[in-house]
Protein backbone atom coordinates (compact mmCIF):
# COMPACT_ATOMS: atom_id res chain seq x y z
CA UNK A 1 0.00 0.00 0.00
CA UNK A 2 1.36 3.35 -0.90
CA UNK A 3 0.94 6.52 1.06
CA UNK A 4 -1.28 8.97 -0.82
CA UNK A 5 -0.75 12.07 1.24
CA UNK A 6 -3.00 15.04 0.51
CA UNK A 7 -4.68 13.65 -2.62
CA UNK A 8 -8.23 13.48 -1.29
CA UNK A 9 -10.77 16.29 -1.29
CA UNK A 10 -12.01 17.76 1.96
CA UNK A 11 -14.10 20.58 0.50
CA UNK A 12 -17.27 20.35 -1.59
CA UNK A 13 -19.95 17.60 -1.51
CA UNK A 14 -17.42 14.75 -1.55
CA UNK A 15 -15.55 16.48 1.19
CA UNK A 16 -18.54 16.27 3.51
CA UNK A 17 -18.12 12.51 3.75
CA UNK A 18 -14.43 13.02 4.45
CA UNK A 19 -15.22 15.47 7.24
CA UNK A 20 -17.77 13.05 8.77
CA UNK A 21 -15.16 10.28 8.63
CA UNK A 22 -12.59 12.44 10.39
CA UNK A 23 -15.17 13.53 12.99
CA UNK A 24 -16.00 9.89 13.78
CA UNK A 25 -12.35 9.44 14.77
CA UNK A 26 -12.42 12.72 16.72
CA UNK A 27 -15.47 11.55 18.72
CA UNK A 28 -13.60 8.40 19.76
CA UNK A 29 -10.60 10.56 20.65
CA UNK A 30 -12.67 12.89 22.86
CA UNK A 31 -14.17 9.91 24.68
CA UNK A 32 -10.59 9.12 25.72
CA UNK A 33 -10.54 12.53 27.45
CA UNK A 34 -13.68 11.55 29.35
CA UNK A 35 -11.83 8.46 30.58
CA UNK A 36 -8.76 10.58 31.40
CA UNK A 37 -10.86 12.92 33.53
CA UNK A 38 -12.50 9.95 35.24
CA UNK A 39 -9.08 8.39 35.94
CA UNK A 40 -7.76 11.67 37.35
CA UNK A 41 -10.67 11.90 39.75
CA UNK A 42 -10.08 8.38 41.10
CA UNK A 43 -6.75 8.80 42.87
CA UNK A 44 -5.78 6.32 45.56
CA UNK A 45 -3.69 3.19 45.82
CA UNK A 46 -3.81 -0.49 44.88
CA UNK A 47 -2.20 -3.59 46.37
CA UNK A 48 -0.02 -5.52 43.93
CA UNK A 49 2.12 -8.50 45.03
CA UNK A 50 1.90 -7.34 48.64
CA UNK A 51 3.09 -3.83 47.82
CA UNK A 52 1.04 -0.67 47.94
CA UNK A 53 1.20 1.33 44.73
CA UNK A 54 0.03 4.89 45.13
CA UNK A 55 -1.43 6.89 42.26
CA UNK A 56 -4.79 5.72 41.05
CA UNK A 57 -7.42 3.51 42.64
CA UNK A 58 -8.59 0.28 41.01
CA UNK A 59 -11.43 2.22 39.38
CA UNK A 60 -8.93 4.83 38.23
CA UNK A 61 -6.87 2.17 36.47
CA UNK A 62 -10.03 0.82 34.85
CA UNK A 63 -10.71 4.26 33.38
CA UNK A 64 -7.07 4.48 32.30
CA UNK A 65 -7.52 1.14 30.51
CA UNK A 66 -10.68 2.40 28.81
CA UNK A 67 -8.79 5.52 27.77
CA UNK A 68 -6.13 3.33 26.17
CA UNK A 69 -8.86 1.35 24.40
CA UNK A 70 -10.38 4.53 22.94
CA UNK A 71 -6.93 5.72 21.88
CA UNK A 72 -6.29 2.32 20.24
CA UNK A 73 -9.41 2.58 18.08
CA UNK A 74 -8.61 6.21 17.34
CA UNK A 75 -5.05 5.24 16.37
CA UNK A 76 -6.28 2.79 13.77
CA UNK A 77 -8.69 5.34 12.28
CA UNK A 78 -6.24 8.24 12.43
CA UNK A 79 -3.46 6.39 10.60
CA UNK A 80 -5.84 5.87 7.68
CA UNK A 81 -6.91 9.53 7.77
CA UNK A 82 -3.41 11.02 7.65
CA UNK A 83 -2.56 8.64 4.83
CA UNK A 84 -5.21 10.43 2.74
CA UNK A 85 -4.91 14.05 3.85
CA UNK A 86 -2.23 16.61 4.66
CA UNK A 87 -1.47 16.45 8.37
CA UNK A 88 -2.01 20.19 8.85
CA UNK A 89 -5.49 19.87 7.29
CA UNK A 90 -6.51 16.70 9.12
CA UNK A 91 -5.24 18.02 12.45
CA UNK A 92 -7.16 21.29 12.04
CA UNK A 93 -10.35 19.23 11.71
CA UNK A 94 -9.39 17.49 14.93
CA UNK A 95 -9.84 20.88 16.67
CA UNK A 96 -13.58 20.28 16.56
CA UNK A 97 -12.83 18.06 19.54
CA UNK A 98 -13.58 21.26 21.49
CA UNK A 99 -17.25 20.85 20.58
CA UNK A 100 -17.42 17.16 21.41
CA UNK A 101 -15.51 17.62 24.66
CA UNK A 102 -17.77 20.50 25.70
CA UNK A 103 -20.74 18.28 24.91
CA UNK A 104 -19.42 15.44 27.10
CA UNK A 105 -18.45 17.84 29.89
CA UNK A 106 -22.00 19.17 30.03
CA UNK A 107 -23.80 15.85 29.50
CA UNK A 108 -21.54 13.56 31.56
CA UNK A 109 -19.88 15.80 34.18
CA UNK A 110 -22.59 18.43 34.57
CA UNK A 111 -20.11 21.25 33.92
CA UNK A 112 -21.66 24.48 32.69
CA UNK A 113 -21.10 25.94 29.23
CA UNK A 114 -21.21 29.74 29.17
CA UNK A 115 -22.42 31.75 26.15
CA UNK A 116 -18.78 32.65 25.46
CA UNK A 117 -18.08 28.94 25.20
CA UNK A 118 -20.62 28.66 22.42
CA UNK A 119 -19.03 31.65 20.63
CA UNK A 120 -15.62 29.99 21.03
CA UNK A 121 -16.85 26.77 19.50
CA UNK A 122 -18.37 28.72 16.58
CA UNK A 123 -15.02 30.47 16.00
CA UNK A 124 -13.25 27.11 15.98
CA UNK A 125 -15.82 25.82 13.49
CA UNK A 126 -15.19 28.85 11.22
CA UNK A 127 -11.45 28.22 11.53
CA UNK A 128 -11.79 24.60 10.48
CA UNK A 129 -14.05 25.61 7.59
CA UNK A 130 -11.44 28.15 6.45
CA UNK A 131 -8.62 25.61 6.59
CA UNK A 132 -10.73 23.05 4.70
CA UNK A 133 -11.54 25.59 2.00
CA UNK A 134 -7.80 25.85 1.34
CA UNK A 135 -7.86 22.42 -0.30
CA UNK A 136 -8.83 22.54 -3.97
Amino acid sequence: MNGQSGKHEISGPKGLLSVIGIQAAVVVFTLSSVCSKMAGSHTGSIELFGRTIRGLSRTGYMWLFLELLCLGVYAILWQQIIKKYDLSIAYANRAFAIFWTALWSVVIFGESLRPAGVIGILLVFCGIFTVNSDVK
Binding site: A116, I119, G120, I121, L122, L123, V124, F125, G127, T130
Partner: peptide
Protein backbone atom coordinates in the same frame (compact mmCIF):
# COMPACT_ATOMS: atom_id res chain seq x y z
CA UNK B 1 -9.73 31.57 14.26
CA UNK B 2 -9.27 28.22 16.01
CA UNK B 3 -6.94 29.78 18.57
CA UNK B 4 -9.30 32.77 18.95
CA UNK B 5 -12.10 30.31 19.61
CA UNK B 6 -9.95 28.58 22.21
CA UNK B 7 -9.17 31.86 23.95
CA UNK B 8 -12.81 32.96 23.96
CA UNK B 9 -13.85 29.54 25.19
Amino acid sequence: LIIAGIVVF
